[in-house]
């Protein structure tokens, strides 16, 4: 027999509760700082790599293709296109959601990379649709300064 069951009843396993006693202060970094400051201003920023003549979204301190440093950053005004979307019916803790959350990979045709963000849950949005960011009125410099993306009319 290839397998041996050591414990027939899970309740018989002796366990001890524990965790790893740390939490974290994450550094935004050079590229992340440009991105978050842009969001606070109601803008989506990208990086411009002069070596491959590309806009990189979200902005980064270096181009992962050319492996060169970047110090030029630009406003990315779209068009923002839904590349793929999903509808989530359960949250991180496996609770059923009353209203499914729509999440999309959003790209810009001339830019490398893209943004993962929410879609307006009340709109019918399909792959290939052009969308626009909806910013909160009160912005703090956070990914959630964008409320969601919705159809661009």
């Amino acid at each position: 027999m290839p397998f041996k069951e050591f414990i027939e009843k899970l309740s018989k396993a002796k366990v001890q509760k524990g965790d790893i006693p740390v939490w974290h202060l994450y550094t935004l970094g050079i590229g992340g700082d440009v991105f978050y400051k842009g969001l606070k201003e109601g803008k989506i920023k990208g990086a411009y790599c002069e070596y491959c003549n590309s806009v990189i979204l979200p902005p980064r301190m270096y181009c992962e293709d050319c492996f060169e440093k970047i110090d030029k950053f630009v406003d990315v005004k779209g068009p923002f296109i839904v590349v793929a979307y999903t509808e989530l019916y359960r949250d991180l803790d496996d609770n059923r959601l009353d209203i499914p959350i729509k999440v999309a990979l959003i790209s810009v045709p001339y830019a490398k990379g893209g943004i993962i963000h929410f879609l307006n849950p009340y709109q019918e949005i399909e792959n290939g649709d052009i969308v626009k960011p909806v910013f909160n009125k009160k912005r703090v410099g956070s990914l959630k300064d964008i409320k969601y993306f919705e159809l661009k009319k």
């Binding site: 550094t27 970094g29 050079i30």
Partner: peptide, 25 residues
């Protein structure tokens, strides 16, 4: 406490090493 992320620190060091070796990625 560096203002750079771990990725950015790695890039800075890697870029310096490549430059000294006179090599491209």
């Amino acid at each position: 406490r560096a203002k750079e992320t771990g990725k950015e620190l790695a890039f800075e060091a890697a870029r310096m090493a490549l430059e000294e070796a006179n090599m491209d990625i």
